[in-house]
């Protein structure tokens, strides 16, 4: 149990510290890198809870896609981050208010002992996560019971792809494209032009 606690505290400490660094780092690229670190640590916490599928999804989706997208945006776009930071003190009271409200709400949640006995959970049978790993459980139903939903999700992704291509692909006339067959069918007759040049005159 000690090992569990130590691991938990390491992961959560790094997660919280890197989250702090996200908003305090001067360099926006560093901010994004700290964001990735924070996500990875959060997924470590999920592993500790026994939700390894969620942990992997967090890494794949948030680190693999979202954070990298942020990184691209930060590096590609010319945003003046110094200007964005101005007026920090101006927003401080509002931010502090939001933080206090959040802390109070979390406190209420912890103080209310009847939270788990509410009508919310009495209907729900949750699987025993200690017996079967949840990736296997999801896999068992995803391609059998929920196969039909899986297919429709695939169609939705197809529609998203077709739609984004339709809206962004444009045919520009000036663009020169490589046409391999015309390159292969080229010979000296239509590629080389012979000219007789008189002496001393040039072309």
């Amino acid at each position: 149990m000690y090992l569990y606690s130590i691991t938990f505290y390491i992961f959560s400490l790094v997660a919280v510290l890197s989250a702090l660094m996200v908003i305090s780092a001067r360099n926006p690229v560093h901010s994004v890198l700290f964001l990735i670190l924070s996500f990875v640590n959060a997924s470590g916490l999920f592993v500790l809870l026994g939700a390894e599928f969620l942990a992997m999804i967090l890494v794949v989706v948030y680190v693999g896609a979202v954070a990298v997208l942020f990184l691209f945006v930060v590096m590609m776009l010319d945003i003046n981050f110094v200007k964005l930071r101005e007026g920090f003190l101006q927003y401080l009271p509002f931010g502090a208010l939001l933080g206090i409200v959040l802390i109070i709400e979390l406190g209420i949640l912890f103080l209310t002992k009847s939270f788990s006995e509410n009508s919310l959970s009495q209907f729900v049978q949750s699987p025993q996560i200690n017996e079967v790993e949840n990736t296997k459980l999801i896999g068992q139903v995803l391609y059998t019971d929920y196969f039909y939903l899986f297919q429709i999700s695939g169609l939705i992704l197809l529609v998203a792809m077709v739609g984004s291509i339709t809206l962004t692909l444009r045919d520009r006339g000036q663009v020169k494209r490589q046409n391999i067959s015309s390159q292969n069918f080229i010979d000296e007759k239509n590629a080389i032009e012979k000219k007789k040049i008189k002496l001393g005159e040039g072309i």
């Binding site: 429709i152 999700s153 939705i156 529609v159 998203a160 077709v162 739609g163 809206l167």
Partner: peptide, 13 residues
């Protein structure tokens, strides 16, 4: 939900 998304995603485009 999936059906609603499928129909409206195409209509947005």
């Amino acid at each position: 939900y999936l059906a609603i998304e499928l129909q409206s995603l195409s209509l947005y485009v």
